[in-house]
Design a protein around this nucleic acid. Structure first.
Lengths: 339, 339
DNA sequence: TGGACGGATTTAGACGATTCAATCGGGGCT
DNA sequence: AGCCCCGATTGAATCGTCTAAATCCGTCCA
């Protein structure tokens, strides 16, 4: 039951000082080849594994980045995490994935833990970007990059133009001849959702005789989408919308299921446009039109901004990067309704 | 640009020694109320945050548990993580969620990182439970609990009787009158998949005139399920299976989509039984029959075993906990075929 | 031959929190 | 008044690694 050996035991076994072992680990070039071999052998023999906590303590900062997302089960966020991780990997840092589940309490808990761990930085899709807790974290010196949300104050952020996304979806549906359109998303207090709503509202307002019905949900998941779908399907055909724009693809997939259950055909009876363009969207029973966000790129860029800030904190200038969304038209909305 | 204050500055500001501050943090009861207040005030004033790395170094072990899963996008695993996390939360420990994506290289990388961080322990659904890397980790003293997989050697594990699950699904389909049944899953080298297959094979072998077709996939996701579904749907009705048992619900959902695309009705033309009973299963266009695994309980139990082992490493005896699965029958298989 | 040079290695603190033995101080008891 | 006791507090050592400065030891050149 020997404890994990430390650098000290490696040094003793190899007949060198701890400094040399440390040099071997960090700057092998300055260690003589013969010594190098002896140290390597001792490391192998003892099964030495670096103690990250000690390195971290000494270095003053850890090699871990916290990534706090709203929903790990949403492929959009896992793609995003993928992107962040791929960059981190090259940089020999670790991403700690935290799931806030759109719950401010959980979010806070995670932020606490991450701060105690003195993470290099935090990438976060915050529930509320004006959260004082988040502000305090920044205040105390942890670099924070907002993800999928535009920073207003002095922070870096990486986001997608959600209003444009909303406009793209709206214009498309209007062009297809729809005059009663539903918007589903929530909570409306979330900036992303509000922006997408505002986007479609704007184009609807600019078109004659087009009406927009908004439905708010607490959580944007499949189950909620299906429930709303069934409710809308139950409306009399006269007043029922003929198209729906859902604020994410999970909602849209659920909505699609709701249509199937209610016996409405997609896209003939109901056109559907989702958001995010996750893989499921393409693979759905009726392939889903969706506003694509470059999820992986978002993750990569956020990590890039963070690395930039960490490397040169002094003269770092916060930047807000904004990407453009694309509308991907598939079968679920591809039906030209006659006026 | 002040650095984060340490316990030392808190002590100075409060006019006490560092020992007292530490006592305040760890054993507040033995600190005099007046002192307590002064320390608390200083902490608030300075915005002190504990340094986890230092605690960890001193304590010799961290308050983090690594959880390595095969696929974070699979709700089964996120439920499982949920369960593990809920217990960890009570115990003031942190769960580090790692996604191996069914890739041994990624898995290894995560194990390396976790070991360097000297995590309290690792909960893992390994790609291959005989991985020497995993053995080495255990050898060097990190407690490991296998999840959703039964340990053979000296390890704790928490799993579900997958053979029973396979038998349940098989019996059900046979009772419904099906004589040509497909099994889809993969890779077959994974124990869980192999067991489920073996379970259904056993009951099929015990029934007269029933035939089982097995299809192997690399990854058990929606996309793969749909592809297999379309392939099977394309078979001539004469030889096409009338029922399918899928080794997880993602496959089953994809398979269901494949049926819809091909114009086959579920359950009339094709009965479907999935595995895991994730939320999507109930919410699917045709509600999915599924073999339910108590995912959250699995996570909780695994964490429990780990905590047990950590608390009393000396006289800990490894245990293999096995739960029973339940078959949940829903519409996708609820059709009594005449012989 | 002596000194300077330079590469390889060692030495000696940190880093921040914890812990335990040592000390302090005040109150109560004889 | 003297002493003891006990709760509260302090001080110092420790965890494992890193780094800057110091040392060592050949070698080369003047």
């Amino acid at each position: 039951m020997m404890a994990t050996p430390s650098i000290k035991e490696v040094a003793r076994q190899a007949g060198v000082s701890v400094g040399t072992v440390s040099n071997f680990l960090n700057r092998p070039a300055i260690v003589a080849p013969a010594t190098r071999k002896r140290v390597q052998d001792s490391i192998d023999a003892l099964g030495f594994v670096r103690n990250e906590a000690a390195r971290h303590l000494r270095a003053g900062r850890s090699r871990t980045v916290g990534l706090v997302v709203l929903d790990v089960t949403n492929p959009f966020f896992t793609s995003l995490a993928e992107g962040a991780e791929s960059l981190a990997y090259e940089d020999d840092t670790v991403v700690m994935l935290c799931n806030s589940k759109t719950d401010p309490v959980r979010e806070m808990h995670h932020l606490d833990q991450l701060e105690q761990q003195r993470v290099m930085g935090v990438l976060i899709t915050p529930f509320d970007s004006n959260d004082p807790q988040l502000g305090a974290l920044v205040e105390r010196g942890t670099p924070v990059v907002l993800v999928d949300r535009t920073a207003d104050r002095g922070l870096c952020s990486v986001s997608v133009d959600d209003q444009l996304g909303g406009r793209l979806a709206g214009s498309h549906l209007i062009e297809c001849g729809h005059r009663r359109i539903a918007f589903v998303g929530g909570p409306f207090s979330m900036q992303q959702v509000a922006d997408r709503k505002q986007g479609i509202s704007a184009v609807v307002a600019g078109a004659d005789g087009v009406e927009l019905q908004c439905h708010e949900v607490d959580v944007m998941g499949v189950v909620e989408g299906r429930a709303i779908g069934e409710r809308i399907a139950a409306m009399p055909a006269r007043s029922r919308p003929t198209a729906a724009f859902l604020a994410n693809d999970l909602l849209a997939l659920g909505f699609l299921q709701g249509m199937a259950v209610a016996g409405l055909r997609v896209p003939r009876d109901m056109a559907i446009v989702g958001y995010d363009d996750i893989d499921f969207a393409r693979a759905a029973a009726v392939p889903l039109s969706s506003v694509r966000q470059p999820a992986e790129l978002l993750g990569r860029s956020a990590m890039e901004l963070l690395q930039e800030e960490v490397e040169d904190a002094e003269q770092h200038r916060h930047r807000q990067v904004i990407f453009q969304p694309d509308l991907i038209v598939r079968e679920s909305s591809d039906f030209r309704r006659r006026r």
